[in-house]
Amino acid sequence: MTIIKNQTVRTVLRYVIPFGVIPALVILGATVFDEKRYLIISFGVAIASIVLFMTGIEKKNIGSRRMVMVAVMTALAVIGRFIPLFKPITALCVMAAMYLGAEAGFLCGALSVLVSNIYFGQGPWTPFQMLGFGLIGLFAGYLSEPLRKSRVLLIGYGVLAGIAYSMMMDVWTVLWYNGSFSPALYLTAIVSAIPYTVLYAVSNVTFLLLLRKPMGEKLGRIKLKYGV
């Protein structure tokens, strides 16, 4: 089974997915299926976006040093998920993104979810979580310059990432429970998830502030010393 080992197939996928598969899925969902099928559509779109990104990685020349760094950061994030209540996973992904680039941030987020779910349980939520943490890492990578300079901005990003992630997963909870989207249930889900949202935001900020200097020094030193 060598689905995407082939170079041409990968290139084709890079154009077919954003301009073909995702619009087709959305249009199909709006017209052919009844409302009960939102979940399949969102599931399909989530998987398609992850595949799109992963095929993009293959083309980029990441370099073996950066690959190993991403693997180390991913493993640290996975171990961090075992800490009860306070999870440093977002903070570690943001750190990886700030010093190793946006792709590294996406990979660190998406893969740490995939690997840690070996221990915590895989399910249809895995692609959504992968996409959620991947995007947190990706945007942190795009904002790496200002995030590295300003502590206030970093705190803001941590809070925002916690809230955004929680609200995204609430959409998924409602879709799973109800089949279609219902504002009343969504509100219930958001309200009942407030403690978790606060916990996410607080632990993001705590770990970002704790790790900002020591982790930044270490990654910066590695970058300077070896030119990752």
């Binding site: 080992k5 293959e58 893969l111």
Partner: peptide, 9 residues
Amino acid sequence: RLSPKLSLI
């Protein structure tokens, strides 16, 4: 299977 680089990481 998605990509050799990914599988290595």
